[in-house]
Design a protein around this nucleic acid. Sequence first.
DNA 1: GTGAAAGCGCTAACAA
DNA 2: TTGTTAGCGCTTTCAC
Lengths: 340, 340
Amino acid sequence: MAEHLNINTSTVSRALSEKSSEMISPDVVKRVRKAAQEMGYKQNAAAYALKVGRTKSIGIIIPDMMNPVFAPIVRGIHSVLNQYGYTAFLAYSENNASAAHTEVEKLISRGVDGIIYAAAFRTDSVVDLCKSHSIPLVLVNRVVDQGNVDTVKVDDSLGIEMAVGHLLDLGHRKIGFIAGPKNISVSYIRLRAFTQTMAEHDLEVEPHRIVEAHSLTEEGGEKAMSVFLGQNPDATALIASNDLIALGCFTALTQFGYTCPKRISIVGFNNMPYLDWFAIPLTTISIPHFQMGERSAELLLKRIDPESDDHYEEVLLKPKLIIRQSTAPVIRRKKKIAST
Amino acid sequence: MAEHLNINTSTVSRALSEKSSEMISPDVVKRVRKAAQEMGYKQNAAAYALKVGRTKSIGIIIPDMMNPVFAPIVRGIHSVLNQYGYTAFLAYSENNASAAHTEVEKLISRGVDGIIYAAAFRTDSVVDLCKSHSIPLVLVNRVVDQGNVDTVKVDDSLGIEMAVGHLLDLGHRKIGFIAGPKNISVSYIRLRAFTQTMAEHDLEVEPHRIVEAHSLTEEGGEKAMSVFLGQNPDATALIASNDLIALGCFTALTQFGYTCPKRISIVGFNNMPYLDWFAIPLTTISIPHFQMGERSAELLLKRIDPESDDHYEEVLLKPKLIIRQSTAPVIRRKKKIAST
DNA sequence: GTGAAAGCGCTAACAA
DNA sequence: TTGTTAGCGCTTTCAC
């Protein structure tokens, strides 16, 4: 196209670039842009990347493609990337640390300008991997124990406080907790918040009230719930570390011939899509997925920008209690039995 | 790393490449690969792409990030891409033709080697766009009217035959259909299959039995269902063009004070995740999402391979009827009323 | 079997 | 304001 207009390629380059077009006579700029439009010229991304060292692409890593809570996060990310001409690779780790590491390595060798990581473990090699390659990294939802990383997360403790408060309001006192794996920040924090909040209400949580699921999935929840029910015949309520675990709890409950909320009230966490349709609509803690995506993308773009100052930021978003039908006032069976 | 071993960069390049390493003495190959391993050398994707003209990346475009049926398709795609060192950009069109066109343009200017397109309309500019750029394109699920495109789809007609057969078996005769937009192949084909199958059973479908939703969404289904119920007080069963529309039908049904399956049986299409949990578990047609993803990725990779012959392929997969509780035997109210 | 050198398409420093 | 030129990191023809 340069030869077509009898001008140098560098002039064309400058005319097309927003920044350097100011150094070029306005009519040349106009002519070049018109020609580019007409012949459908598109900048070669590979050449640009090779020259400038930036690809205008980022990588997103989520733990699980099938967990519908990540869809709105990804949408949030895209919504801001689009405004800045960035594109995203999407990868998933299947909740496996080494798979995540491999995916990040692949992304880095693809030359992504940054990574949004929603699949972190509390200690995670991905952080150092990115640091050693000087690749900007933003953690969403799940964070790591070590500091010095940009993060966007929800106030999990507040969420659990809300859940506990709700159950206390309904009269529950014998409340259990199905935790997720301790090596994931959200599981860890939610569990800690549970015992703390209970303690603040002068309710000591005995160890048998807490069962740890091996993963944040339906299957993990089901197994853990079986154990829980075996050792907690008297519990009237329960908080699950996330919605998927809560679903697993439903399954185990059914296997035991019990019903929710009649026998036991259950609160989830995340407010995944379609819960309203469920046979037992799950009371849960809603987190602002879309906004989390937006904020993390904004943060990452800021960090990619060489102009920006480089101290880490931590965005903390507020959860919300969504009351549905899986929680109900406690029925004081025990007392009646005791009084007979 | 070349200078580190005192050999030429071209030797390094050859040693690292699977194909050209045969031209190099085995011990040099070994030394180079070991060194590459140790110093964590990773090929620069941009330079490779610029030189060779292939990026080893593809683009995936789905209509809707929030529709959970696309997650397993994307997983299927990834599962084969991973085996061949390919990576995928994921974009979505929000069911908007021009948005899809723009996304494809972006992907092409990123230099993707091919595109998997799950968001096609029956006539869609994306096909010509890819043709004009000589970018391999595979259509999944939704296809276009024009031929000469690689496609992976489900036998929608067979699916509808199964649905109709199921309802007939239950004794239903007054069966309605909530169609999706006619400009999307799956909606169009499913509707056509419905009237044809009914006709084959000597059941003429009167026009008021069919209502077209403006989109394949809950909201579209709800509005269409309101219309349908207004003009079909006697219908005992209904097929929805997809599950989301069926959910919308549930909503409208509730608004009218009716219940499913007591008042009307409903069959969906797609077998989206979590249906088993629903208050009214939806009878639906299951399609092999994961396999669709796999097959489309295989097809695309084959088309990208310059060695391959270039006649188009059309993969047709089989659906399956999943019977749940949204369908039940017809109750012959009418006859009783008539006999009074 | 290996080295030398060209060039993919672009941008930016340097000249003019 | 515009042209000239070098070079990003890689592969690949052409020599040897």
